[in-house]
Design a binder for these strands. Structure first.
Lengths: 174, 174
DNA sequence: CATGCGAGTTCACTGACTGAACCACTGCTG
DNA sequence: CAGCAGTGGTTCAGTCAGTGAACTCGCATG
């Protein structure tokens, strides 16, 4: 858990990455940060993660330079992805693609589009309409055909992230 | 650990994927399978993973259809990636890319090439020489500029996987 | 001053991981 | 055919990390 090597293989960048984001909950926290979640309480309610674990993960991610911790405009604390954190998008996307392919028979659970022209993104993150590799802030996520509305979450945070929205745009308090 | 949801969010393919490959050690086992490791003992010695954990992970991955378990030609048991398992390559590659980018200042630890023409692969898996998206069995992995020979591993399995080789090609006993 | 809220911390409990030792089966080998 | 080594596990006690509920702290508001 602490910095000094949790995995032995010093020559493997996969192992090195997993030391940072490979623990339980960590990538879901990062995913929520992409979805615009910034507040401690919002992470906690949406993920139903024990607060002690959340506190530890957030501290570690800040220490690793994946998130920043600042006092937000509204007075509370805000956690946001750094540039290094945003670079985790291909990782998140690859994992989502695999889950959609093998565990979502009725189609992707969340569709990913280029917000400028509405084009779907392929597996490499390229817009099928304009052909460009879409930068993360221009990506829109919305429920796809495999999305199950019966399970869309009753808390306001889940409702917000299940509404079509751009990545990184902050979810707004009710 | 068992199948019934370890994460709450039923509408997230990321969570679903992490239920399969998100536990400690699991992706390193898969990585080794890409590198041609097939035998129980070889996984154990290269990863220095407790044998009980390895046994549990292998059983689970077989159950999930990521690996197959067969009696090999040489008489022992062989674990191999299924087509579904091979589809995890983009995940492994994305994680390695991020680790190389942020934790390997002197360059990638392992270079990934198209074995047919020697072209380097970009982040989307496309060959810079011939321009095609390279299928996994045609990918060659070799030590890159960030590779540290002082730490290249003394056991025969590590030596084998630190030698340039095609993915999925079985490592041969000494 | 009471109330409430956000952001954590504390704590007892449980479950998972660790490492070492042990077991079972196979195929030799003398 | 007894002994032995190799492979593929299982068992077990000790430790460590995750869980969930309750609690604390600081700050703003009424």
């Amino acid at each position: 858990m602490t910095l000094p090597s949790t995995y032995a293989d010093r020559n493997c960048s996969l192992a090195r990455t997993l030391e940072v984001v490979g623990e339980r909950w960590t990538l879901l926290i990062v995913r929520n940060a992409f979805y615009g979640v910034r507040r401690f309480g919002d992470f906690a309610t949406q993920l139903k993660i024990p607060r002690a674990v959340l506190a530890g993960r957030l501290k570690f991610l800040v220490q690793e330079g994946v998130l920043t911790r600042d006092d937000g405009a509204a007075g509370g604390v805000e956690y946001r992805l750094t540039a290094k954190g945003v670079e985790l998008w291909p990782v998140v996307r690859a994992l989502m693609n695999w889950g959609d392919a093998f565990y979502s028979p009725s189609g992707v659970r969340r569709a990913v589009r280029h917000d400028e022209d509405g084009g779907l993104l392929d597996h490499e993150g390229r817009c099928e309409t304009c052909g460009s590799v879409v930068p993360v802030p221009e990506i829109r996520v919305e429920p796809g055909p495999g999305f199950d509305p019966a399970d869309s979450g009753l808390d306001p945070v889940s409702s917000a992230i299940n509404t079509p929205r751009r990545l990184l745009e902050p979810i707004t308090a009710p």
